[in-house]
Design a protein around this nucleic acid. Structure first.
Lengths: 199, 199
DNA sequence: GATAAATCTGAACACTGTTCATAAACAATC
DNA sequence: GATTGTTTATGAACAGTGTTCAGATTTATC
C-alpha cells in the first residue's frame, strides 16, 4: 500500500503552509520583508518548526522561487501561438515575459535578487528548474537561425533571454537607466527582432 | 581665504576613511560582508562615528558605488578608439564593460544588487552618477542609426546597455542561464552587432 | 498500554544596524 | 589664555534578525 503515514502527511502539510506563507510575505514585502517569525506565525507553527521543515530561510525562499518558476514556465508555454511564424513566437515569448514580470513584480524580483551565502552551492533541482526560462526559445530560434549549431543555439538562447531580462530588470528597477514602463514592450520587441534576424 | 577649518577637514577625512574601508570590505566580501563594526574598526573610529559621518550604512554604500561608477566611466571613456568606425566603438565599449565587470566583480555587483529600503527614494546625485553608463553609447549609435530621433536614440542607448548588462550579469552570476565566462565576449559582440545594424 | 522515535516548542543565543547620554575636542569671544 | 557654546567622538545599550537546542509532546510500532 502507499498509505503515506500521518507523519509524512503532516510534514508535507507544514512545508506547504510555510511555502505558501513565505510566498505571501515575499509577494507583499519582497525579500527584505520575509521574516522567520512572521512566516511561522502565518503558517501556524512555532518559530523552530521552520527549521525542522527546511534547513534555513534561504532554502524556503528557493522553494518559493520554484513555484514562481513553474508559473512563469506555464505562462511562457501558453504564450507561444501554435502554427505561427517563428519570429511571431519569439515576440510573443518576450511579451509574455514582460507581462509576467509586471504582474508578479516582487516574486519575479526574488528569482534574481536572492543570493545564497558565499560558499553554499545551489542545489541541482533548483538550477534545473531554470530551464523553463529558455526552453521555449530554442525551437523558434532554430527556425530563424539554421546556421547555428545545436550548441551555439543553446548559447544564443541564453544570451537572448539574458538580454531581454536585462532590459526588463533595469526598467522595473525604475531608478537608473531603464526604459519607462510604457515603452518596455516596444524596446524589447526591437531587441528581439534585431537578435532573431538571420544573417 | 578658503581655509577649511579643522572641523571640516577631519570630517572629510573620516568620511573618506570610511568610504575606503567600506570599499575594501565590499570588494572582499560583497554586500553581505559589509559590517558596520568592521568598517569603523578599519577606518579607525568608534562604531557611532559612522552615523555622524553618514545617515546609515546604505548611504555609505551609495558613496562606494559612486566611486565605482567613476572608475567605470573612466574605463569606458578610455575604451573608445578615436577616429574608428562607429560599430568598432560600440564593440569596444561593450568589451570594456565586460572587462570592468570581470575585474571588479564584487564592486560591480554592488552597483546593481544594492537596494534601498522601500519608501526611501534614491538621492539625485546618485541617480545622476549613472549617466556614465550610457554617455558613450549615444554618439556612435547616432552615427549607426540616423533614423532614430534624439529621444529614441537615448531610449535605445539605455536598452542596448541594459541588454549587454543582462548578459554579463547572468553570466557572472554563474548559476542559471548565463554564458560560460570564455564566451561572454563573443555573445556580447553578437548582441551589439545585431542591435547596431541599421535598418 | 508500553516503548522508542520523530516532531514540536519557544526561550536563549549570537550577530546585526542604530541610538543616545556622556565625554572630549574644537572655535569663538573677551 | 580662560570661558563658553557648539560640534564631534565614544561605546554601552537597544531592538530586530536568523538559528539552535533541551525538554515536552505527539506519533508509530509492538
Amino acid at each position: 500500500m502507499e498509505i503515506r503515514n500521518n507523519r509524512e502527511q503532516q510534514r508535507d502539510d507544514l512545508r506547504n503552509r510555510l511555502i505558501a506563507a513565505a510566498e505571501h510575505q515575499l509577494a507583499d514585502g519582497g525579500l527584505a520583508g520575509l521574516k522567520a517569525r512572521e512566516v511561522t506565525a502565518e503558517a501556524g507553527c512555532a518559530l523552530g518548526g521552520l527549521y525542522n521543515a527546511f534547513d534555513d530561510l534561504d532554502r524556503l525562499i528557493l522553494h518559493v522561487n520554484l513555484r514562481t518558476l513553474a508559473r512563469l514556465g506555464q505562462a511562457l508555454r501558453d504564450a507561444v501561438p501554435m502554427g505561427a511564424a517563428a519570429d511571431r513566437k519569439m515576440l510573443a515569448l518576450a511579451q509574455a515575459y514582460v507581462t509576467f514580470a509586471l504582474g508578479n513584480r516582487k516574486l519575479w524580483a526574488a528569482l534574481f535578487d536572492h543570493r545564497l551565502p558565499e560558499g553554499v552551492e545551489t542545489p541541482d533541482w533548483y538550477l534545473a528548474a531554470h530551464s523553463v526560462l529558455i526552453a521555449e526559445i530554442a525551437p523558434p530560434l532554430a527556425a530563424l537561425r539554421p546556421d547555428l549549431s545545436t550548441e551555439d543555439l543553446m548559447l544564443r538562447s541564453k544570451t537572448l533571454f539574458a538580454a531581454v531580462h536585462g532590459v526588463v530588470q533595469l526598467s522595473l528597477q525604475g531608478r537608473f537607466i531603464g526604459a519607462p514602463l510604457e515603452r518596455i514592450e516596444s524596446e524589447v520587441a526591437a531587441l528581439v527582432t534585431a537578435m532573431t534576424r538571420g544573417l
